[in-house]
Write a protein that binds this DNA or RNA. Structure first.
Length: 424
RNA sequence: GGAGAGUUGGCAGAGUGGUCGAAUGCGGUGGUCUUGAAAACCAUUGUGCGGCAACGUACCGGGGGUUCGAAUCCCUCACUCUCCGCCA
């Protein structure tokens, strides 16, 4: 969530930038400031009341000790009124604090200056495009038919075992999946990221820490008996490694990567958008996470995008980079780049990575700080990106690399798959 | 699942009703000494909120209560650990 004191420094500026999200947060911002003003005035009164009451308590103690019990009794009577008053003020304080928090939860991150205004994904700004479009033969198939033809993925079996959106990968399909995971992890390790294997279920505090709770509760699977959530992305457990942590300024950067399955309820999704591997309830992803000094975080964001482009080049997939417009920007992000690969048989661009700088929005909830050069605690910046999400990569690989012989495996992957063609 | 113990500052760990924002040690920072470093010694060192500041106030896992006064007593919730049981 936003830091209220930072918000106060430039209220109108924040309101203006928030407008690029294609929504007006003027009333939320104004009401949170008003609520904070009220909170302050209550606190001044409360502090004064408590100060008086603390002073009396001290006197009473001294009087008892020096044996002046009757004088002490007199003072005791006076404290009753103060106690009542401070109780009432405390209650008001709590309700104001709660109100402030609730409004802050409704306000998304302030977009970076470079975020284009826009309504939805059609307004995202294309930055670049790279790679050669495959020239498919006439009988080219969409990936779900390829997967079926070569026995790589059994969607029906997943339906039996669990339900729609939980595919069973088998044979070379499973091996290809595992190869991609290892390839992505190795590439991240080579780029200096420490590999972690985090828990796949998280508690409520972690969900709040990275911003999935309370806003997006319905998107996560929830285990009621234990009150745990299945992770929708590795971002949640990996970033929460840094919850309630104060790091040393000299220790920047923190670079972590990890493979996790991801679980998403995807309530409300339907139609051809979700066909095959396009949208699943369970999928695999390698995530890269950074904790950075505020002065450095945007350079790091570019570096992360470059890392991901490198992966796509090695996989020989045509891709493009988008700068998300305000309307498509995630709630907690200040700036996001999406990378999309072209899936030739579907003739569609598929999002395979989303790389974001959250600035201090997550760090504020996480209480993730560092000691700055003045010795003061300051919120760090968090960033993360998919490097990469597997299913759509798989879809593009299958569709783009099909020829008369079968499916060609890109060179860089062969040492992981230990086969270079998928044939019938 | 059963029984017990615990949760205190960056870390370790003391503190059972006022003199406790909290001993002590480690760590951090500054200094003395030294050619330099180490050691030793001295000083300093938590966070939030309000305030220009002085200062005030809150925080000893969370919430509530008793009391003039709570880290300390009571209730409640969460978590951690140990032993037993079950189990990969």
């Amino acid at each position: 969530m936003l830091e209220i004191n930072k918000l106060r420094e430039n209220v109108s500026g924040a309101i203006e930038l928030l407008k690029t999200r294609n929504k007006d947060f003027t009333s939320e911002v104004n009401s949170v400031i008003a609520a904070d003003d009220k909170r302050k005035s209550i606190q001044v009164e409360l502090d004064a009341t408590l100060a008086e009451s603390n002073g009396l308590s001290k006197q009473i103690g001294d009087l008892f000790k020096s044996g002046k019990a009757s004088e002490a009794q007199e003072l005791k009577a006076k404290t009753a009124v103060l106690k009542e008053k401070s109780h009432a003020l405390k209650e008001e304080m709590h309700s104001m604090e709660k109100q402030i928090k609730e409004i802050l939860y409704l306000i998304p991150n302030v977009p970076n200056l470079t975020v284009p205004a826009g309504k939805d994904d059609s307004d995202n700004a294309k930055i670049d495009e790279e790679g050669t479009m495959p020239d498919l033969h006439a009988e080219a198939l969409p990936h779900w038919e390829i997967a079926d033809k070569y026995g790589l993925i059994d969607f029906e079996l997943g339906v039996k075992i669990t339900g729609a959106g939980f595919p069973v990968y088998r044979g070379k399909g499973a091996k290809l999946q595992r190869a991609l995971i290892n390839f992505f992890i190795d590439e991240a390790s080579d780029a200096g990221y420490e590999e972690v294997i985090p828990p796949h279920l998280v508690n409520e505090a972690s969900g709040i820490g990275t911003g999935q709770l309370p806003d997006k509760e319905g998107q996560m699977y929830h285990t009621e008996v234990d009150n745990l959530y299945l992770i929708p992305t590795g971002e949640v457990p990996i970033t929460n490694i840094y919850r309630d942590v104060i790091i040393k300024e000299s220790e920047f950067s923190h670079k972590l990567c990890g493979y996790t399955p991801c679980f998403r309820r995807e309530a409300g999704s339907y139609g051809k958008e979700v066909r095959g591997l396009n949208r699943l309830h369970q999928f695999d992803k390698v995530e890269i996470v950074r904790v950075e000094h505020p002065d450095n975080s945007y350079a790091v964001l570019d570096e992360m995008v470059e890392h991901i482009k490198g992966l796509l080049r090695k996989l020989e997939l045509p891709f493009r980079t988008l700068r998300l417009c305000g309307g498509d920007l995630g709630f907690t992000a200040a700036l996001t780049f999406d990378l999309e690969v072209y899936s030739a048989a579907q003739k569609r661009w598929l999002e395979v990575s989303s790389v974001s700088n959250f600035e201090t929005y997550q760090a504020n909830r996480l209480k993730l700080r560092f000691k700055n050069s003045e010795g003061k605690s300051q919120l760090a910046h968090t960033l993360n990106g998919s490097a990469l999400a597997l299913p759509r990569i798989l879809a593009a690989l299958l569709e783009n690399n099909q020829d008369e012989k079968g499916i060609r495996i890109p060179e860089a992957l062969v040492k992981y798959t230990r086969f270079d063609y998928i044939t019938e």
